[in-house]
């Protein structure tokens, strides 16, 4: 009897972990932001699709995600059930904050979603096209005030790259940092600044209502059904896309990484996940495996270069 019990217990112990991992997803940001929403959307989809039985989300806010990243690396090394959400902003924050922990220390799994920035002006602005903006910028770079998210973030990087691409000294860009795209929206609507640059989601409602005019989007292609031209269509050869990703703990075996890869692939193709993307207006930018590793490395190099050009990183 005892042996039977023991055997049952052992089988149980062996079978349960193989059946479904109980993931813990860290959102290295306060509740409510993009990373937190991504983590909670993953939680919802992983559970609803039965990919994982029980998913926990923890929030560790601070310093562009670097606080959470440091804690993740310290606490979860070698743990195959720990995931962390992150994104492009983290790449910049690691550099500007001289973070002791970098993305090289986690195991990148996949890019999940993405969003391009848009450049907008108030409806009453004289600027009608990207050409007008380029002309104004060339005449007097300081006279164009750009409102966007925090310094060194993707909006700032996009503004700097824009100037550099059209042949204007990126250190001359008059970038006014707001604590988020929302506050920047208020500044553009109130006519306090010349242009606004931030994620399409921040400005979309006002573009549709006609309060703002979108000059261009920074994406590689036009969004489906959108009449906002891309920068390349407007003669500025530049693509900047903000993205969010998921990574796993450092020190995993190949089998453990493969298991997570498979779960995430199941996640992104699931109906629940696609439904969440739809309701949130997130663009599916799933990219996994080695292709993502290469893309990540390229983004880090490019970001480092432009942050040096703008003068944020020595």
């Amino acid at each position: 009897m005892n042996k039977l019990f023991l055997a049952a217990l052992m089988t149980g112990a062996l079978v349960v972990p193989g059946f479904a991992a109980d993931y813990t997803i860290m959102a290295p940001a306060a509740p409510g932001g993009g990373w937190d929403q991504t983590a909670r959307a993953m939680q919802e989809a992983l559970q609803a699709e039965g990919i994982s039985g029980n998913v926990q989300v923890t929030n560790v806010p601070g310093a562009g995600g670097t606080i959470g990243l440091a804690q993740f690396v310290n606490q979860y090394s070698g743990n195959p059930e720990a995931l962390i959400v992150g994104g492009y902003v983290m790449v910049g924050a690691i550099l500007t904050n001289a973070s002791p922990v970098s993305l090289a220390e986690v195991t990148p799994i996949a890019r999940l979603t993405g969003e391009s920035d848009v450049i907008v002006v108030p409806a009453a602005s004289e600027l009608q096209t990207v050409d007008d903006l380029v002309a104004m910028l060339k005449a007097d770079p300081g006279s164009v005030s750009w409102a966007g998210g925090s310094a060194g973030g993707v909006d700032h990087i996009a503004a700097g790259l824009f100037a550099k691409t059209v042949g204007v000294d990126p250190t001359k860009v008059n970038y006014i940092a707001y604590s988020g795209g929302g506050e920047a929206l208020a500044a553009v609507l109130g006519g306090q600044v010349t242009v606004g640059i931030s994620g399409l989601g921040e400005f979309d409602a006002q573009i549709q209502s006609g309060d703002l005019r979108a000059l261009a989007s920074t994406g590689a292609e036009r969004l489906e059904g959108s009449d906002i031209p891309t920068l390349s269509e407007s003669g500025v050869d530049l693509v900047v896309e903000n993205w969010r990703m998921v990574a796993a703990a450092p020190g995993l075996s190949d089998e453990e990484k493969a298991a997570i890869d498979a779960d995430i692939e199941k996640l992104v193709t699931s109906a629940t996940w696609q439904g969440i993307l739809e309701t949130n207006g997130w663009q599916d930018m799933y990219l996994g495996g080695e292709a993502f590793d290469a893309q990540l490395a390229a983004d880090i190099t490019a970001t480092e270069a432009i942050l040096k050009d703008i003068g944020l990183v020595q």
Binding site: I67, N97, A98, S150, H156, Y178
Partner: peptide
């Protein structure tokens, strides 16, 4: 916020 530089943080994240 404006320059992205750390002030008086003494290297403590």
């Amino acid at each position: 916020l404006q320059t992205g530089q750390a002030r008086l943080a003494f290297g403590i994240p």
